[in-house]
């Protein structure tokens, strides 16, 4: 794997070389999504979440991840898909993004897959739960299609309310 350092760098290098990248795929509602596995720190069960007063409903709260306090975002709630149940089988993917660690709740984790840049094709304008701005492309899977997410951008979208609002 080349160009671990930055996503853009990785994408470029990979594109030039037609290199393979590894992706973690997960299910949100009826759709299958893929994120760069280098952004994934760990996968854990849901639990120990402390609710934040007056936060939007998709921000479930914060957890203590070995001394670090990280927010938990329920992507099912955020995008209005799936069933909002919370038990020990609920999956949290802990993402290590460029400047922060965030946990996301998804319906289920499916697989780890390898994709070359050639496999990822630009997404046409179509209707998904996720804003198309944050879709890197689409790729074929054995039994259907997977949507490759640009997760860094998606999580720093103001709509996620994960960052301090810009002043002024």
């Amino acid at each position: 794997m080349t160009g671990k350092n930055s996503e853009a760098g990785a994408a470029q290098v990979a594109a030039a070389a037609g290199a393979e990248r590894e992706f973690l795929t997960f299910r949100l509602g009826e759709e299958e999504y893929a994120i760069d596995i280098l952004k994934v720190q760990e996968i854990r069960g849901y639990g120990g979440v402390t609710r934040i007063a007056r936060a939007p409903s998709f921000i479930k709260g914060v957890i203590n991840l070995r001394g670090t306090i990280i927010p938990i975002v329920d992507l099912r709630d955020r995008f209005g898909v799936g069933e909002l149940t919370y038990d020990e089988f609920t999956i949290v993917i802990v993402l290590n993004l460029s400047d922060r660690v965030v946990g996301i709740v998804v319906d289920s984790v499916s697989d780890v897959m390898r994709l070359t840049e050639d496999h990822i094709r630009p997404a046409p304008d179509f209707s998904t739960a996720v804003d198309t701005r944050y879709i890197e492309g689409l790729a074929d899977m054995d039994d259907g299609m997977v949507i490759v997410l640009e997760i860094n951008g998606m999580m720093s979208d103001p709509g996620m309310e994960l960052q301090n609002a810009e002043l002024g």
């Binding site: 670090t68 306090i69 990280i70 927010p71 922060r100 309310e161 994960l162 301090n164």
Partner: peptide, 11 residues
């Protein structure tokens, strides 16, 4: 005391 802002935001 832990900082909330390092991974989340000011509340």
């Amino acid at each position: 005391i832990k900082n909330l802002e390092s991974n989340y935001r000011r509340v």
